[in-house]
Amino acid sequence: MEVIDLAWWKLALTALLILALGAVSVAARLGIVRSLLIASVRTIIQLTLIGLVLEALFASSHFYWVALLAFIMLLVAGREVVARQQRRLIGIWSFGIGTGAMFVSSFTVTVLVLTVVIGPQPWYSPQYAIPLLGMMLGNTMTGVALSLDRLTESVWSQRAVIENRLMLGETWRSALEDIRKQAMRSGMMPSINAMAAAGIVSLPGMMTGQILAGSPPSIAVKYQILVMLTIAVGTGFGTLIAVSWGSRRMFDERERLRLDRLVKVGR
Protein backbone atom coordinates (compact mmCIF):
# COMPACT_ATOMS: atom_id res chain seq x y z
CA MET A 1 0.00 0.00 0.00
CA GLU A 2 1.28 3.45 -0.93
CA VAL A 3 1.42 6.16 1.72
CA ILE A 4 -0.23 9.40 0.68
CA ASP A 5 2.36 12.12 1.17
CA LEU A 6 1.01 15.34 2.59
CA ALA A 7 1.68 18.48 0.62
CA TRP A 8 2.97 21.42 2.69
CA TRP A 9 0.12 23.68 1.57
CA LYS A 10 -2.36 21.14 2.93
CA LEU A 11 -0.63 21.27 6.31
CA ALA A 12 -0.96 25.05 6.08
CA LEU A 13 -4.73 24.52 5.93
CA THR A 14 -4.69 22.88 9.38
CA ALA A 15 -2.50 25.73 10.62
CA LEU A 16 -5.24 28.10 9.44
CA LEU A 17 -7.69 26.19 11.63
CA ILE A 18 -5.40 26.87 14.62
CA LEU A 19 -5.47 30.55 13.70
CA ALA A 20 -9.26 30.39 13.58
CA LEU A 21 -9.31 28.84 17.05
CA GLY A 22 -6.93 31.58 18.18
CA ALA A 23 -9.23 34.28 16.78
CA VAL A 24 -12.22 32.79 18.59
CA SER A 25 -10.35 32.66 21.89
CA VAL A 26 -9.26 36.27 21.50
CA ALA A 27 -12.89 37.23 20.92
CA ALA A 28 -13.98 35.21 23.94
CA ARG A 29 -11.04 36.48 26.04
CA LEU A 30 -9.97 33.02 27.08
CA GLY A 31 -6.38 34.15 27.49
CA ILE A 32 -4.85 31.04 26.00
CA VAL A 33 -4.09 32.40 22.55
CA ARG A 34 -0.45 33.17 23.33
CA SER A 35 0.43 29.73 24.62
CA LEU A 36 -1.64 28.10 21.88
CA LEU A 37 0.28 29.92 19.14
CA ILE A 38 3.68 29.39 20.73
CA ALA A 39 2.99 25.69 21.23
CA SER A 40 1.79 25.31 17.64
CA VAL A 41 4.86 27.04 16.24
CA ARG A 42 7.09 24.92 18.50
CA THR A 43 5.43 21.73 17.26
CA ILE A 44 5.97 22.71 13.65
CA ILE A 45 9.59 23.73 14.08
CA GLN A 46 10.63 20.91 16.43
CA LEU A 47 9.01 18.16 14.38
CA THR A 48 10.38 19.52 11.10
CA LEU A 49 13.85 19.59 12.59
CA ILE A 50 13.60 16.09 14.06
CA GLY A 51 12.35 14.92 10.66
CA LEU A 52 15.52 16.25 9.06
CA VAL A 53 17.68 14.74 11.82
CA LEU A 54 16.00 11.36 11.47
CA GLU A 55 16.38 11.39 7.67
CA ALA A 56 20.09 12.05 8.06
CA LEU A 57 20.37 9.46 10.82
CA PHE A 58 18.61 6.77 8.80
CA ALA A 59 20.98 7.47 5.92
CA SER A 60 24.13 7.03 8.02
CA SER A 61 22.93 4.76 10.87
CA HIS A 62 26.25 4.78 12.72
CA PHE A 63 26.01 3.67 16.33
CA TYR A 64 27.55 6.85 17.75
CA TRP A 65 25.03 9.12 16.01
CA VAL A 66 22.16 7.08 17.45
CA ALA A 67 23.81 7.18 20.88
CA LEU A 68 24.34 10.93 20.63
CA LEU A 69 20.70 11.60 19.77
CA ALA A 70 19.58 9.26 22.58
CA PHE A 71 21.82 11.14 25.01
CA ILE A 72 20.43 14.53 23.96
CA MET A 73 16.88 13.21 24.32
CA LEU A 74 17.71 12.03 27.84
CA LEU A 75 19.15 15.39 28.88
CA VAL A 76 16.14 17.29 27.56
CA ALA A 77 13.80 14.90 29.38
CA GLY A 78 15.82 15.44 32.57
CA ARG A 79 15.48 19.18 32.25
CA GLU A 80 11.76 18.81 31.70
CA VAL A 81 11.40 16.73 34.90
CA VAL A 82 13.10 19.50 36.87
CA ALA A 83 10.92 22.17 35.28
CA ARG A 84 7.72 20.37 36.23
CA GLN A 85 8.38 20.38 39.98
CA GLN A 86 7.06 23.03 42.34
CA ARG A 87 9.47 22.05 45.10
CA ARG A 88 12.65 20.35 44.17
CA LEU A 89 15.85 19.06 45.68
CA ILE A 90 18.60 21.64 45.63
CA GLY A 91 21.73 21.43 43.54
CA ILE A 92 22.26 18.75 40.95
CA TRP A 93 20.09 16.26 42.84
CA SER A 94 16.76 17.03 41.24
CA PHE A 95 18.18 16.75 37.73
CA GLY A 96 20.45 13.87 38.67
CA ILE A 97 17.78 11.71 40.27
CA GLY A 98 15.25 12.31 37.50
CA THR A 99 17.73 11.75 34.70
CA GLY A 100 19.34 8.78 36.41
CA ALA A 101 16.02 7.08 36.98
CA MET A 102 14.97 7.64 33.37
CA PHE A 103 18.32 6.45 32.08
CA VAL A 104 18.30 3.22 34.06
CA SER A 105 14.72 2.29 33.24
CA SER A 106 14.11 3.63 29.71
CA PHE A 107 17.44 2.63 28.25
CA THR A 108 17.47 -0.82 29.81
CA VAL A 109 13.95 -1.63 28.66
CA THR A 110 14.51 -0.17 25.18
CA VAL A 111 17.73 -2.09 24.64
CA LEU A 112 16.09 -5.25 25.92
CA VAL A 113 13.14 -4.86 23.56
CA LEU A 114 15.42 -4.06 20.62
CA THR A 115 17.77 -6.99 21.11
CA VAL A 116 15.40 -9.67 22.33
CA VAL A 117 11.88 -8.86 21.12
CA ILE A 118 12.11 -6.96 17.83
CA GLY A 119 15.62 -7.87 16.77
CA PRO A 120 16.43 -5.51 13.86
CA GLN A 121 19.85 -5.70 12.16
CA PRO A 122 21.85 -4.06 13.68
CA TRP A 123 20.01 -3.87 16.98
CA TYR A 124 20.52 -0.09 17.26
CA SER A 125 19.00 0.47 13.82
CA PRO A 126 17.65 4.03 14.21
CA GLN A 127 14.33 3.34 12.53
CA TYR A 128 13.41 1.17 15.51
CA ALA A 129 15.65 2.49 18.27
CA ILE A 130 14.82 6.20 18.18
CA PRO A 131 10.99 6.06 18.04
CA LEU A 132 10.93 3.34 20.70
CA LEU A 133 13.27 5.23 22.99
CA GLY A 134 11.29 8.40 22.37
CA MET A 135 8.05 6.80 23.51
CA MET A 136 9.71 5.20 26.52
CA LEU A 137 11.41 8.42 27.57
CA GLY A 138 8.31 10.54 27.04
CA ASN A 139 6.16 8.38 29.26
CA THR A 140 8.81 7.64 31.85
CA MET A 141 9.45 11.36 32.05
CA THR A 142 5.80 12.01 32.87
CA GLY A 143 5.80 9.30 35.53
CA VAL A 144 9.05 10.43 37.12
CA ALA A 145 8.03 14.09 37.10
CA LEU A 146 4.60 13.42 38.61
CA SER A 147 5.93 11.13 41.31
CA LEU A 148 8.82 13.39 42.33
CA ASP A 149 6.50 16.38 42.43
CA ARG A 150 4.04 14.48 44.60
CA LEU A 151 6.83 13.21 46.83
CA THR A 152 8.42 16.58 47.58
CA GLU A 153 5.08 18.34 47.93
CA SER A 154 3.74 15.73 50.39
CA VAL A 155 6.92 15.66 52.43
CA TRP A 156 6.69 19.42 52.75
CA SER A 157 3.03 19.54 53.72
CA GLN A 158 3.26 16.57 56.08
CA ARG A 159 6.59 17.45 57.65
CA ALA A 160 5.14 17.62 61.18
CA VAL A 161 3.75 14.10 60.88
CA ILE A 162 7.03 12.75 59.52
CA GLU A 163 8.98 14.38 62.34
CA ASN A 164 6.58 12.97 64.91
CA ARG A 165 6.91 9.47 63.49
CA LEU A 166 10.68 9.78 63.59
CA MET A 167 10.42 10.91 67.24
CA LEU A 168 8.56 7.71 68.01
CA GLY A 169 11.57 5.79 66.80
CA GLU A 170 10.32 4.80 63.36
CA THR A 171 12.86 4.48 60.55
CA TRP A 172 12.73 6.99 57.70
CA ARG A 173 11.31 4.27 55.51
CA SER A 174 8.30 3.62 57.67
CA ALA A 175 7.81 7.32 58.47
CA LEU A 176 7.58 7.97 54.73
CA GLU A 177 5.67 4.82 53.82
CA ASP A 178 2.30 6.38 52.91
CA ILE A 179 3.85 9.25 51.01
CA ARG A 180 5.99 6.89 48.95
CA LYS A 181 2.92 4.86 48.11
CA GLN A 182 1.01 7.93 46.96
CA ALA A 183 3.95 9.16 44.91
CA MET A 184 4.26 5.77 43.18
CA ARG A 185 0.54 5.78 42.48
CA SER A 186 0.47 9.20 40.90
CA GLY A 187 3.49 8.34 38.75
CA MET A 188 2.01 5.08 37.50
CA MET A 189 -1.61 6.18 37.06
CA PRO A 190 -1.31 7.66 33.54
CA SER A 191 0.24 4.45 32.14
CA ILE A 192 -2.26 2.24 33.91
CA ASN A 193 -5.20 4.34 32.74
CA ALA A 194 -3.86 4.38 29.17
CA MET A 195 -3.59 0.59 29.16
CA ALA A 196 -7.09 0.19 30.55
CA ALA A 197 -8.65 2.52 27.98
CA ALA A 198 -6.59 1.38 24.97
CA GLY A 199 -8.65 0.22 22.03
CA ILE A 200 -11.99 0.89 23.66
CA VAL A 201 -11.93 4.57 24.47
CA SER A 202 -8.86 5.61 22.51
CA LEU A 203 -6.91 4.33 19.55
CA PRO A 204 -3.33 4.90 20.64
CA GLY A 205 -1.36 7.38 18.56
CA MET A 206 1.44 5.07 17.54
CA MET A 207 -0.91 2.41 16.21
CA THR A 208 -3.02 4.99 14.42
CA GLY A 209 0.10 6.38 12.77
CA GLN A 210 1.25 2.96 11.66
CA ILE A 211 -2.15 2.15 10.18
CA LEU A 212 -2.28 5.52 8.42
CA ALA A 213 1.16 4.75 7.03
CA GLY A 214 -0.15 1.56 5.48
CA SER A 215 0.69 -1.24 7.95
CA PRO A 216 -1.86 -4.02 8.35
CA PRO A 217 -3.81 -3.40 11.59
CA SER A 218 -2.85 -6.81 12.97
CA ILE A 219 0.84 -5.87 12.92
CA ALA A 220 0.16 -2.37 14.20
CA VAL A 221 -1.80 -3.84 17.10
CA LYS A 222 1.06 -6.16 18.04
CA TYR A 223 3.49 -3.25 18.08
CA GLN A 224 1.07 -1.21 20.13
CA ILE A 225 0.72 -3.97 22.71
CA LEU A 226 4.48 -4.26 22.88
CA VAL A 227 4.86 -0.51 23.29
CA MET A 228 2.17 -0.15 25.96
CA LEU A 229 3.50 -3.01 28.05
CA THR A 230 7.07 -1.81 27.83
CA ILE A 231 5.99 1.75 28.59
CA ALA A 232 4.26 0.51 31.74
CA VAL A 233 7.40 -1.42 32.72
CA GLY A 234 9.72 1.49 31.96
CA THR A 235 7.53 4.02 33.74
CA GLY A 236 7.08 1.69 36.70
CA PHE A 237 10.77 1.06 37.24
CA GLY A 238 11.64 4.69 36.51
CA THR A 239 9.12 5.91 39.05
CA LEU A 240 10.24 3.32 41.58
CA ILE A 241 13.87 4.38 41.26
CA ALA A 242 13.07 8.09 41.34
CA VAL A 243 10.87 7.76 44.42
CA SER A 244 13.37 5.67 46.33
CA TRP A 245 16.38 7.85 45.47
CA GLY A 246 14.37 11.00 46.04
CA SER A 247 13.03 9.95 49.40
CA ARG A 248 16.45 8.74 50.55
CA ARG A 249 17.80 12.18 49.75
CA MET A 250 15.19 13.81 52.01
CA PHE A 251 16.93 12.24 55.00
CA ASP A 252 20.56 12.31 56.00
CA GLU A 253 22.73 9.48 57.29
CA ARG A 254 21.30 9.99 60.79
CA GLU A 255 17.78 9.69 59.36
CA ARG A 256 16.87 13.27 60.10
CA LEU A 257 14.35 14.92 57.81
CA ARG A 258 16.24 17.47 55.73
CA LEU A 259 13.74 19.99 54.41
CA ASP A 260 16.60 22.40 53.79
CA ARG A 261 17.43 20.21 50.81
CA LEU A 262 14.18 21.30 49.16
CA VAL A 263 13.68 24.59 47.42
CA LYS A 264 10.46 26.16 46.24
CA VAL A 265 10.46 27.21 42.64
CA GLY A 266 8.46 30.34 41.97
CA ARG A 267 5.97 29.86 39.20
Binding site: Q158, A160, V161, E163, N164, R165, M167, L168, G169, D178
Partner: peptide, 11 residues
Protein backbone atom coordinates in the same frame (compact mmCIF):
# COMPACT_ATOMS: atom_id res chain seq x y z
CA UNK B 1 12.04 8.18 71.70
CA UNK B 2 10.56 11.61 72.11
CA UNK B 3 7.08 12.81 73.02
CA UNK B 4 6.60 16.47 72.04
CA UNK B 5 3.99 18.70 73.69
CA UNK B 6 2.13 18.87 70.41
CA UNK B 7 1.50 15.44 68.92
CA UNK B 8 0.66 14.50 65.34
CA UNK B 9 -1.82 11.82 64.26
CA UNK B 10 -1.71 10.46 60.74
CA UNK B 11 -4.07 7.49 60.59
Amino acid sequence: MMVPADSQWWF
